[in-house]
């Protein structure tokens, strides 16, 4: 079970998410599964700022310059240089020993600094408890602590999602990143995200 990383301590694992855009069929199962696992009380409620289902995965539909419909699914990137951890005045946002960015509700006063600090706009304020929710929620933490994949990975019918340890060269995410073309979002921010968008074969 992962615990809070102490100052100066290095994470034992570097858990990362992969989303394979070339496989995704845009069914939205991951978005729904995320809400069901992490905030079931929000299943039929909207995140007003995003104008979409309150989920730790944000869906972005757009049209390419050539007129082709495009989809991007984003979630907490579990950045290795996370701006939300730098800015949180109370230490509520922290790294765990798996290298994931986590939230300690006991230390959160609801200032929203982490929300404005996230370059990916993937935190949302829960309307009831005012916590800045994000991937991974309690439901997915429980799943991964028991050795399972997060809800989005389990729900994806197209095998477009994966989750694993970047430090382990034999993990499925490491193999995918070695064999397929991928990129990270907004790298110029220097946040060192651990969310990879796979674009297809090399």
């Amino acid at each position: 079970m992962s615990t809070r990383l102490r100052r100066g301590q290095a994470p034992t694992r570097r858990m990362a998410h992969i989303w394979d855009a070339s496989r995704c069929i845009a069914c939205g199962a991951c978005v729904m599964a995320c809400t069901q696992a992490n905030a079931p009380e929000m299943m039929f409620r909207e995140e007003k700022g995003w104008k979409s289902l309150a989920s730790n995965i944000r869906r972005i539909d757009s049209v390419s310059p050539h007129g082709r419909p495009e989809l991007l699914l984003v979630q907490c990137q579990h950045c290795e240089n996370a701006p939300c951890i730098s800015t949180c005045p109370f230490g509520a946002t922290y790294y765990d020993t798996d290298g994931r960015v986590r939230l300690d509700p006991a230390r959160c006063a609801g200032c929203s600094y982490c929300v404005t600090s996230c370059p990916y706009n993937v935190r949302w304020l829960h309307p009831d408890n005012k916590l800045p929710k994000k991937c991974m929620g309690d439901g997915c933490i429980d799943l991964t602590d028991s050795g399972q994949h997060p809800a989005c990975v389990q729900a994806c019918p197209a095998m477009a999602r994966d989750y694993g340890d970047l430090n382990d060269p034999s993990s499925s995410v490491s193999v995918t990143l070695r064999t397929k073309r991928s990129r990270r979002l907004l790298e110029a921010t220097g946040s060192e995200p651990k969310f990879f968008v796979v674009e297809g074969s090399r």
Partner: peptide, 25 residues
């Protein structure tokens, strides 16, 4: 949003002597 939790937050910070001086806030 969670102003009612502020005393607890401050207490945890003080007893752990854990202050994030990277935060301008």
């Amino acid at each position: 949003g969670r102003w009612w939790n502020l005393p607890r937050v401050l207490w945890i910070m003080v007893i752990n002597l854990d202050f994030n001086f990277n935060s301008w806030m």
